[in-house]
């Protein structure tokens, strides 16, 4: 099977080009932009919802973007088992669209935060993490958000844990998940989760920013390579 990423462009997306560049120029995959006003996924078999401030995020992050025409197609695609990855604002949109459970609230510092963080990889047996070898304790990937404080009720949190839906948690460089390393107040230090079926990933950190060796970080490639491997094998 061939591999093709579709990167959705909402008005206000600003990591769309970064994702495109990482996939096309660094990893050499086939990629196409998908304009939000259309509903054609153009034969993409992985949909990427990029970071940014869709519609300015003036109402609530991701709240308006989910009504874009393209989202109907994305929801159908995901419900049929299609692979979807939402990064930062993309994660927020997936929550608003109901493709992932829980909600996002403002960082507990009430401030935007941009920095490199370490993520402990909680589940390596997924479409998105199979290429992260078990001797690698953490991945280093930057965050940049004002609303990345993941919130869910206790029942949902329990369910996420039981189903191993929590994929990434904020940690120190050794992989210890501590309060100190939680940049935004997320429950259980959650940085990324998948849906029950495991075909939809939402994560606040930006893997596309950790791909180009020139910039000194490459752990983000492992996530895209995992997806590629899953599709190509």
């Amino acid at each position: 099977m061939s591999l093709k990423f579709g990167v959705v462009v909402f008005p206000g997306s600003n990591c769309d080009h970064d994702a495109y560049y990482a996939l096309r120029k660094i990893l050499n995959y086939d990629v196409e932009f998908l304009w939000h006003k259309e509903n054609d996924l153009k034969q993409s078999n992985v949909i990427l919802l990029p970071g940014g401030f869709s519609y300015g995020d003036y109402l609530r992050t991701g709240a308006i973007a989910r009504f874009s025409p393209i989202m109907n197609s994305v929801i159908n695609f995901a419900n049929k088992g299609g692979i979807v990855i939402g990064i930062c604002n993309g994660f927020q949109i997936l929550l608003e669209a109901g493709l992932l459970p829980g909600v996002m609230i403002r960082n507990n510092s009430l401030k935007f935060v941009c920095k490199d963080v370490y993520l402990s990889v909680e589940n390596r047996d997924t479409i998105f993490t199979s290429e992260i070898s078990s001797d690698k304790k953490v991945v280093k990937i930057p965050i940049a958000h004002g609303e990345g404080n993941y919130f869910a009720n206790p029942e949902l949190l329990k369910e996420l844990e039981e189903n191993q839906q929590i994929i990434f948690r904020y940690s120190d460089a050794e992989g210890n998940v501590t309060e100190n390393d939680n940049p935004n107040g997320s429950q259980l230090n959650i940085a990324g989760i998948v849906n029950k079926n495991g075909n939809v990933l939402g994560m606040m950190p930006h893997p596309e920013r950790a791909c180009d060796p020139t910039l000194g970080k490459t752990d983000g490639t492992l996530i895209f390579k995992s997806i590629a491997n899953y599709i190509l094998n």
Partner: peptide, 14 residues
């Protein structure tokens, strides 16, 4: 100050 700024978007920041 600068942790409140996105210093990395556009993936050119070396």
């Amino acid at each position: 100050v600068y942790h409140q700024y996105d210093s990395m978007v556009r993936t050119n920041t070396i």
